[in-house]
């Protein structure tokens, strides 16, 4: 088994996000970038597949600032090989189809037969990568994956739905998985292992040709109406309770 894990650096949303001058992106000059949390789980699950079923693990990322360090940390975590994919250009918050177009050829060229990535990112307004990659590769895919087990003739994948409902799905051939949570929390990688991995230089591969079809574009970004801190409800207990219930109804959070 050869597992490719797609890792993405995303803005740390604990940070203050400012909108760029162009108005359709955040100001990336100053924002802290971190590994997408779900990708972290995808990497963990891939390493678990390596440990449980002897899979070889290749971590893949689109080239960019901080990607070497990101991929080195993947080595420290247990990835066997790290590859960064070069590409010409992507618009801000790019369409999943465009990203999938860049990645799909390289993943196929690597000979991967299972692709794991995070189920979503804070900025994938253009769609989620796992399903888009599945469509591009012509492979089945599963989102919201919470654990993968090797089986004699493939993989057994747990897919989670709302309300605690889940299914166990058997996948016989190549498959793309959008991981929500790994079978166990992402392991900690000690500073000494990270320091050892600093020497690793990721391989460079050219991505596939740019996506030709029409795609959705983010035209502008804006801060939501309510700023930091709580919007305070005024009035007595009845008035507050009314507003509370109205909010729950609006957000679809009423029980039932």
């Amino acid at each position: 088994m050869h597992a490719a894990v797609v890792l993405r650096l995303v803005p740390d949303i604990a940070d203050d996000l400012e909108i760029s001058e162009s108005g359709n992106d955040i100001d990336r000059e100053w924002v802290g970038m971190k590994l997408n949390e779900f990708d972290d789980h995808a990497l963990e699950e891939a390493v678990l597949l390596k440990e449980r079923a002897g899979a070889s693990v290749t971590a893949v990322a689109l080239d960019g600032d901080g990607v070497d360090k990101l991929l080195q940390s993947a080595i420290a975590r247990g990835a066997d090989r790290v590859v960064k994919i070069t590409y010409d250009e992507l618009p801000p918050l790019p369409a999943a189809a465009a990203v999938a177009a860049i990645l799909a050829d390289a993943i196929q060229a690597l000979g991967a037969d299972v692709v794991l990535t995070g189920v979503q990112t804070p900025e994938d307004a253009g769609g989620q990568l796992a399903a888009a990659l599945g469509a591009r590769l012509g492979w089945p895919h599963l989102s919201a994956v919470a654990g993968v087990q090797p089986a004699p003739d493939g993989l057994i994948v747990r897919q989670e739905h709302s309300g605690g409902y889940a299914t166990r799905v058997h996948a016989a051939g190549p498959v793309v998985l959008g991981v929500q949570s790994a079978s166990q929390p992402p392991r900690y990688v000690s500073g000494s292992k990270l320091r050892q991995a600093i020497g690793v230089k990721p391989e460079k591969r050219a991505g596939g040709e740019a996506f030709a079809g029409p795609v959705a574009m983010v035209r502008r970004l804006a801060k939501p109406a309510s700023g930091g801190g709580a919007a305070m409800w005024k009035g007595d207990a009845d008035a507050v309770a009314d507003q509370f219930v109205a909010l729950l109804r609006e957000r679809g959070l009423l029980k039932g």
Partner: peptide, 11 residues
């Protein structure tokens, strides 16, 4: 997007 911190206008 961004955990609800921003709203994207998509076309």
């Amino acid at each position: 997007v961004y955990g609800g911190k921003l709203i994207a206008g998509i076309e």
